[in-house]
Structures are given as structure tokens and as C-alpha cells.
Amino acid sequence: MNKRQNGYPEMDFSYFPGCSLATTAAESNQSLMQAAQAMGFNLLELPDWNCCGSSSAQTMCRNLSLGMAARNLSLAPPDRPLVAMCPRCLHYLRSAQKCLQQAPLTRRELEERWGRPINVEGEVIHFMEVLVRHGLDRLQAGARRSLKGLRFVPYYGCTLFRPPRLKNESYFEGEMENILASLGAEPITHALMYRCCGSFLSATDPEIVTPLVNEIIDSAAAAGADCLVTACAMCQLNLEIRRTGKTRIPVLHFSETLALALGADDYEKWFVRHIVDPRPIITKLVQAA
């Protein structure tokens, strides 16, 4: 807590990247790290983390699903919150935590098997929650590039926007708009921002997903958006690889827009990983400045 960033003390968080951010969406991970650093958040990667189990384990075997998520909880030190960026990972980590709180015998059995305690009381939160709780001032203090004129469709992804077991979990509705609008961007909310991207059907049944994705992209174009901004790496991927229409609208990760606003200048390194080229956005920002 000694070092300071823009006058704010540094804060430590455990960080669970998850399989998507570690591979297909590495650009989201890179930009998140830069943005977090610029705001004085230390995201300390969970050592030797494993996949959260995802929908595959959840569908095929509940014990496996619980065990995979629980192992990650057992790796998280109790003295700081565990932060995830992937909404689905967040959901499975939280579900496992809730389950183990109610099943002390299962918890003890797993703890004995691994020879270490499982963190069942600590907080498991999305990075957006870190921002909303601690980061809004830091973001303003660190902003180096105005997002003025950037017309974006906020696209949260289902798990963040409509969390499973709806009544008991916090919603993030409106937060992305508030955060990016405070940096000068202009939210466009009359597009299909709530429509599901197709999830794993994109891998198994692309013919179901393609028309849905095209509708989402076309609705953003019709609303005059420059880009969509997603909080979920899988949504980002599906919206890019399953569009077949003529409209080409870039789909940015939420973390990328943060990093851009905080002045990142190596954005070309992540932009080359996009299937729809996001560089026109930079041109627009430069012209607006």
C-alpha cells in the first residue's frame, strides 16, 4: 500500500484470467493489465489456476463442475478479493463458493484432498465491480485520451446482464454506459444490446448463430454506432467470427476501451488480433480531439 498511482494507493486483487482471456482473447487480458496498472490496481494472477469447468462440466457432471471451480478458490489467498473478467467464470466460481458454504462436509473432503483451505468467505467479483467501487476517480485522474465522439453499443453478455438466479445477484445494468460516458463516449442503447451471442452454439451449430449475430451487428449499424463494446470475451469472439453481412463494425473488449482512455499507445498490438479492424475508431478519436 506504499506506492501510489496518481495520488491513489495501490490495491491488490487476486486475478482469475480463465481460458478465453489466456488464449483467444489475449488482447482483452493485455489491455486489462495495462488499464489496471494505470489505475493502481495490482491484478495478481492466481498461481496454477485451472478452467472454471464452464458449461461443459456443468452439463455433464455436477461434482466435476464444483471440484474444478473449488480448486481455484483453494488457490486464492483469503486477504484480498478474487477478480474475474469472464462473466461465465465469475458465475461458476461464485456458484461453487455458495455451494461449499452450504456443504461443509464436501468442503472438508476437498480441503483434506488438497491439503489447503478453500476460500469460501472471500469476495469473488467482476472487474467492473472493482471499477465501480474503487476506480471511477482513478479512471478520471488517469485519463489521457478522450473518448469524445465514440458512439458505442454496450453489450454486456447474458451472464453479467441477466445473472443466473436473478434475484440474488447484482446487476451491472447501466454501469458500462456510466463508465464510458464519463470518459466522453456516447452510449447507443437502441440496438440489440441484450440479445444472446449464441454462446457455444457458435462452435456446434453456426447456422443457428449466424443470423442472430448479423441481426445484432445490423441493429448497431442502423443505430449509427461506431463499435460495440463487450464485457464478455466469448461474445466478442462470436460477434466477430459469425457475422457474414456487409456491415463491418468493430467489437471492442471493455478493457480495450479503458486502456485506450488511459493512454495506452501500443494498441496496434492488440488490434491486429481482431477479425474486424478497429483502427477506424482511433482515426475518429484523433479527428475529434
Binding site: 481460458c19 489466456a22 488464449t23 483467444t24 485451472n50 478452467c51 469447468g53 464452464s54 458449461s55 461443459s56 462440466a57 452439463t59 455433464m60 457432471c61 466435476l64 474444478m68 457455444f200 462452435a203 456446434t204
Partner: peptide, 17 residues
């Protein structure tokens, strides 16, 4: 598909897409 994902998780602990 789900089984293929689980086989990957069994081998590596993480998904190898």
C-alpha cells in the same frame, strides 16, 4: 462438443480450443 471440452480439461486442466 461438451465431451470434447471435458477431455481437453482432463488432459491439461485448461481448455485447448
Amino acid at each position: 462438443f461438451h465431451e470434447e471440452v471435458l477431455r481437453s480439461l482432463e488432459k491439461y486442466g485448461r481448455a485447448h480450443k
